[in-house]
Write a protein that binds this DNA or RNA. Structure first.
Lengths: 111, 111
DNA sequence: ATCTTATATCGCAAATATACGATAAGATGA
DNA sequence: TCATCTTATCGTATATTTGCGATATAAGAT
């Protein structure tokens, strides 16, 4: 591959792609679900709910965090995670905007 | 890794993750944009518009097609691609549903 | 001070994704 | 038929992701 070409695209395209990448694993979607269902910051209960090792879950959490979709803070001996609604909503509307933009221009399929 | 654990999650989680994965590259987002802007099925004009080799673009098109986001048909010596609005809308609303589901349960950040 | 508990990180192995050149396949035009 | 043009596929190199066990770290309990 030699060089990645990702940075040759627009910032918007890259941002949206990064957001999508963060969502591109069922484990991470399941984590987001759990975080919301519990209506509170959950630490390692996630580990019990998912069919994955603790280190793997921790890694997925790290990815969600670095993508900005969740926030994490240390609470005594355990870690507390929450969905970052702001960022989530931003990407969601950006995604909808792209979709609406596409939709408006072409309605009839041609092939 | 030995075994992939992806199939241990629910079908909905997997579907949404697969959709996200298809969107998880700026080149593929750019392709979708082009397909919509041209308001018609575009074949290899995409190659001229993207900073990628023809074979690479073809591969991205294949992924979008196998994810069901675009359709393709042969038109003489060239190939014609279109956005599959139906599937796109389905995933979009599924995504929104997940988001709304999350949103309704938790509004105040706790960390 | 030491032990326990919870979590993050490191190191590694395997799988997948990304990218390209070369080549094949299919249709059109000379 | 043969050359050409367009697109798909193959083979290959490299990068990234996924997953786990082992280990480190940090706070609380004994």
């Amino acid at each position: 591959m030699a060089i990645h070409k990702k940075e040759e695209f627009t910032q918007k395209e890259q941002d949206l792609a990064n957001f999508a990448k963060a969502m591109a694993h069922p484990a991470r979607i399941a984590i987001l679900k759990v975080l919301a269902q519990r209506n509170a910051c959950i630490c390692g209960e996630i580990v019990d709910l998912l069919p994955l090792a603790q280190s793997t879950v921790s890694q997925h959490l790290k990815e969600l965090k670095s993508a900005g979709l969740i926030t994490g803070s240390i609470d005594g001996p355990r870690s507390c995670y929450c969905i970052n609604w702001k960022a989530f909503e931003k990407y969601n509307s950006e995604f909808n905007f792209l979709f609406a933009n596409l939709k408006v221009k072409n309605e009839k399929a041609c092939c």
